[in-house]
């Protein structure tokens, strides 16, 4: 389909969103990502039964932590789609890109630069 999506997004492939851990998100943000999101299969359609449900719970945990430490939980999101929905994938990418642009850069980066 050769659909376009924002170049700001770096894709990391995992066998199932059930593999995505709280730490993955935190490390990504700690290393300077402005946001991160998981895209899993539709809820109820997980090949491993509950991988995407676990992922959603972990995303919620990360959101809570980021809110607590003042980074902002909205920087992390969970999306669901089925494998044939390329256009939706692109749409989510655009949505996420817009969300993060609105939020601005990851606040720890300006201090990191200062420290360096």
């Amino acid at each position: 389909m050769r659909l376009a999506y924002p170049t700001s997004i770096k894709i990391i492939r995992v066998p199932c969103t059930g593999k995505v851990d709280v730490l993955y998100f935190l490390r990504a943000l700690e290393k300077g990502a402005d946001g991160a999101y998981a895209v899993g299969c539709m809820e109820g359609d997980c090949h491993f039964n509950s991988g995407n449900l676990r992922a959603r719970k972990r995303v919620e945990q990360v959101q809570k932590i980021l809110d607590t430490i003042g980074i902002g939980g909205e920087r992390v999101q969970m999306y669901n789609l089925s494998s044939s929905e390329g256009p939706l994938f692109a749409q989510y990418a655009v949505e996420m890109d817009e969300r993060i642009r609105k939020l601005g850069p990851n606040p720890i980066k300006k201090h990191k630069k200062k420290a360096a």
Binding site: V22, L23, L26, I69, I71, I108, H111, A115
Partner: peptide, 21 residues
């Protein structure tokens, strides 16, 4: 080990955001 990683990462980001080394 995992919870250590999560807490440490969160604390590092917190202090950076506060401008503390």
């Amino acid at each position: 080990k995992k919870e250590v990683g999560v807490l440490a990462s969160a604390l590092r980001m917190y202090f950076l955001n506060e401008g503390k080394e």
